[in-house]
Simulated assay, not measured.
Amino acid sequence: MVMRRLRLLAAMTVPLWVMAPAARADVPAPEDAQPGIVEDGVYPGAERILAERGITLISGNGLITLTDCGEPGTIQLYSAEKGHICFKVRIWRAFAPDLPTLEPALNSFIVLRIPDVYVIKGSRTATQQATLTVDDRTKTYDIRPDEWTPVGEGVDPDNPPETLVELRAGQEKTW
């Protein structure tokens, strides 16, 4: 009895589905329709931040973001030109040890330009690297967690000022 009712129900619903009007390709979308969501990697609000704070934020994956200083666990830095600047770090944890593309796990990143950086303090829980440039040369520093690491002029006052161009953070491999 139950099977007969299910077959009858199925027979009744199929014609309704077939009779439903199909979407028409020749009908334009409304003018006030939202644009499609496409991740372009551009830092949101970068123009406003450049105008207000003079910090150039270029791109990233959204896991390192500019924040107010004072929050615990942030990456902090000092620039002789821009002052005290802080970034919140979130770590994407992958539970797939068999994927070699996840190594090294410095998966959070931001591309930026902050001139004359001389010291960086790492967040408490992440492994961090900072890439700085001077005179078309690039140098990558390992930033110690929860410690101040001198860079550029902070290492030696005779060093020329270095521009921070990238921050990376991640969790050390635990498997």
Rank of each mutant, 00 (worst) to 15 (best):
N159H: 13
L50P: 01
L63C: 05
G70V: 08
P161Q: 03
Y118N: 12
T149G: 02
I91Q: 10
D26M: 03
L50Q: 14
W148A: 02
D116L: 00
I110A: 11
T67L: 02
K121N: 11
T140N: 03
P35R: 08
A51I: 04
P157M: 05
T149D: 02
E52A: 15
Q76D: 15
A126D: 07
R24N: 13
M12F: 13
P104Y: 07
E172S: 12
N159L: 01
D146R: 09
R137E: 15
V89A: 12
L63P: 00
P28M: 08
G45E: 06
A130F: 03
V14T: 10
I110D: 03
A23R: 07
D135K: 11
P150Y: 09
G70A: 06
E166T: 09
D142S: 12
I114N: 00
G45S: 06
S59C: 06
A130N: 02
P161R: 08
R24K: 14
E39I: 10
R53C: 04
P115G: 08
D40E: 11
L106T: 08
G41H: 07
V155N: 01
P150Q: 06
P72L: 11
A130P: 06
D142M: 07
I55G: 02
I85T: 12
L106N: 09
I58P: 02
L132A: 03
R124K: 13
V155L: 14
P161F: 00
I37H: 12
D40H: 12
P104D: 13
Q129R: 15
R144C: 03
W92E: 14
A94K: 05
G60L: 00
L63N: 14
N159P: 02
A126N: 10
I49R: 03
P160M: 09
D158W: 05
A29E: 12
T140F: 05
L63D: 12
I143G: 02
T163M: 13
V2Y: 10
E147A: 14
T163V: 13
G60R: 01
S79F: 00
G54Q: 07
A94V: 09
K88D: 13
P28F: 01
W175M: 06
E31R: 13
A10N: 07
F109K: 06
W175A: 11
E166M: 15
G154E: 01
F95S: 09
I58A: 10
W148T: 03
V117A: 09
L16P: 03
L16Y: 07
D26R: 05
R137N: 12
R90P: 00
G152W: 00
A105G: 11
L167G: 01
K121Y: 02
E172F: 09
T125L: 14
W92L: 14
R93Q: 11
P44G: 10
I85Q: 02
A33M: 09
A10P: 01
A126T: 15
G70Q: 06
F87I: 07
T125P: 00
P100D: 11
F95Q: 10
N61K: 05
V119D: 08
R124V: 10
I49T: 09
P115K: 02
F109I: 04
P104L: 04
A94D: 13
D32P: 01
L106H: 12
L77W: 01
L102T: 09
E31K: 13
